[in-house]
Computed example of a mutant assay.
Amino acid sequence: MGNAAISLVRSLTPKEYGFTLVILILAALAGFYCFIRAWKRWHLIKDTPTARLRSAHQGYIELEGKGKSLPDRPIFAPLSNHQCLWYHSLIERKETILEQKRTRTEWKVLYRNTSNHSFLLDDGTGIGLVNPEDAEIISNEKLIWYGNTEWPVRTGILSNGSAIVALASRYRYTEQLILPGQRLYIIGHLQTRSLATERSVRDIARDLLSDWKQDKQQLLTRFDTNRDGEIDLAEWEIAREAALSQAQTIHQQLLHETEIHHISTPRNCLVPRCAGMG
């Protein structure tokens, strides 16, 4: 085998030899880059302890749990029509290229679409809202099938297409999916929010005053104590105090509302547990 490789190298023209050498160098650099990236990811996962939503600190954390769809908001992959939590869809067309009296085939991308719809993560102690936008996602559910129309005319199944069909088809359809109920491993930024933390008493009071201004007659009825048809400074101060008092009552009610855990970027990584990560 070694002699055959030496003979093959000797048969190359200087131009072919240079081209082959460049390809090998680029392949080595790409392999080194992938190794460093995987090594950094492994250390990131190794050094980040798994938290629970019930007691998790705010900021960069690691979570595990089952993925769930938002109620009444199912997501369907555009090519296979499978219900899912997240998808990355790709349509490619096979093209034949003639170069120096040789032909080669390559796949040209015609359509690419990545889901940015939020979904839920249930870790048994709480439920978090996951925003996958700009996240790095590794999915082990991958569909590849083939056809002769630009848009697939049949629904893909959770299996790969045969090599014979691939050779005879002009189009290739690919989808990566995260499915409902799948165990997920997530590293991301956690921020727990509630309506009470999002809106202060002064914010609520300002909105109340803005609403009251929209109905001038009602405003005059409530606060125009001298009945001159105008709200003077003293009367406006009374209106402000009334708005603050009502805002405090509303804010106290908001304190009892359910908190929402948001999991998002910067630089979050969503990795299905069954993909062997974590």
Rank of each mutant, 00 (worst) to 15 (best):
L190Q: 03
L120I: 12
K108P: 03
D207M: 13
S159V: 05
Q83H: 10
S245C: 08
D224G: 01
W107D: 02
L177H: 07
R104C: 06
R41Y: 09
H189Q: 10
A242F: 06
R154Q: 00
Y17Q: 15
K46P: 00
L79E: 01
K15C: 11
R193Q: 13
G229P: 03
N3T: 13
G278A: 12
A196W: 04
L79D: 00
S7Y: 13
Q176C: 04
L158Y: 04
H43A: 13
G31T: 05
N268M: 14
W86C: 04
S7H: 14
N148L: 08
W86Y: 15
H262K: 11
L24T: 05
C274L: 15
G31H: 06
F76W: 02
D134L: 14
L21E: 11
W86E: 03
I157K: 12
K216T: 09
A196T: 04
D207G: 11
E136G: 05
G59T: 06
G229Y: 10
S115K: 00
F119H: 04
L44D: 03
H251Q: 07
T155D: 08
A163I: 06
R170T: 02
G128F: 01
I260L: 15
A239R: 01
S11P: 00
F35C: 15
R102W: 10
R41N: 09
W236Q: 07
R41L: 14
V22L: 14
E106Y: 09
T48K: 01
A27N: 13
K66W: 07
L53A: 00
L167W: 10
D122G: 07
P180M: 11
T192E: 05
E230W: 09
C274H: 11
T174F: 01
S264E: 07
W86S: 04
A135S: 10
T265V: 15
I157T: 12
T103Y: 14
S159P: 02
Y87A: 03
